[in-house]
């Protein structure tokens, strides 16, 4: 029983690490939770992304791979353009 509990705790710890990594990579790629959710296959809600990032729900492995692909290969020009648009909207 102790061994089983240890394994469950280890898996929870790994999922938590994955959620921290997901949040960090999303912020670095300049995507909002809503935009990231739309780009995933199948697309998910903003609340689901939020729950994944907070570690409330475990991220499915295939969705984590998709997040890596979306965040890793997002063109930088587009995100810069989006930031400019956001700034002009604020003004």
């Amino acid at each position: 029983m102790k061994f089983k509990a240890l394994i469950i705790n280890a898996i929870k710890l790994l999922w938590l690490e994955i959620s921290i990594v997901t949040k960090s990579m999303r912020l670095d790629s300049g995507l909002s939770q809503c935009e990231l959710g739309k780009r995933l296959l199948p697309s998910v809600n903003e609340s689901t992304i939020s729950a994944w990032e907070e570690g409330e729900e475990p991220i499915p492995v295939y969705q984590f791979i998709m997040i890596c692909f979306v965040c890793g290969f997002t063109s930088e020009k587009k995100t810069k353009q989006q930031l400019k648009n956001q700034r002009t909207d604020k003004k």
């Binding site: 921290i20 990594v21 960090s24 990579m25 670095d28 790629s29 965040c71 890793g72």
Partner: peptide
């Protein structure tokens, strides 16, 4: 700790 988009790729 920070995880960049290149690391995601």
């Amino acid at each position: 700790f920070s995880f960049s988009k290149q690391e995601a790729a």
